[in-house]
Structure formats: structure tokens, C-alpha cells
Amino acid sequence: MRGLRWGDALVVTLAVALVGSAFGLAYTPGGGATELVVTQAGAAPRHYPLDVARTIGIDGTAGVTTIRIEPGRARCLDSPGSQGICERAGWLERPGDMAVSLPNRLVLQVQGPGAGFDSMHF
């Protein structure tokens, strides 16, 4: 394009490198989660260490929520919710990540040494 100078190429190259490295740094699997906290309405929070791979089932008012635990991460495998929201939350691996099953009135959250906020709102 007319009017461009070498400085433009330099700035854009540096900017692309910056953006690329930002993506790389921010989205490399960080992990750090050490335990899964299952909070269910009417029950005390239950803590499961994220050490040995296993599958657990949590009984709720609408059925059974199946949770897969692996070293450093956990996820909801199956839950009674019709929209699959709990399953679609995917692997919970950063401290603070959470999955929710409304039909079973259940919140799954992984925690680590660094205390996190519950959620972000705009």
C-alpha cells in the first residue's frame, strides 16, 4: 500500500510477535489445581484430591452426576441436565475453574494453592 514505511513493518512485526507470545504464555496449560470441591445444596462441601485417576458419582435430586478425576484436573462426564452445561465446561484444571449442574444443585470447582475469585462479571 502507498505511504507505508519500514517503521510500519517493524511495528506490525513486533506487535504480531507480542500478540503471539501473549497467546502462548496465557494459554499454555497452567494447571496448579490440587483438589476438587463439590458443593451441593443441603450438604457440606466435599473435597477430593486430584491425585489418582478415578471416576466418582454424586447423587442429586435429578440423578447422578458422574465426575472424572485425573491428576491435576477433573471434569463432569455426565449429568442429568438436558443442555449439557456441566459437561461442556470441559476439564477444570486452573484453580477457580468451575462446572455447574443446576438440576442436581451442584457446583464443581477445582482449587489450588492460589486462592481465586469465584467468577468475573462485566
Binding site: R5, G7, V11
Partner: peptide, 13 residues
């Protein structure tokens, strides 16, 4: 550096 070495594109970015 404008306009010899950079244009508004570099400055804008």
C-alpha cells in the same frame, strides 16, 4: 519518525 520512517499504520498499531 513520521513521515520519513513510519506512517499512521505503525503509529496506530
Amino acid at each position: 519518525l513520521y513521515p520519513g520512517h513510519i506512517s499512521a499504520v505503525g503509529l496506530g498499531v
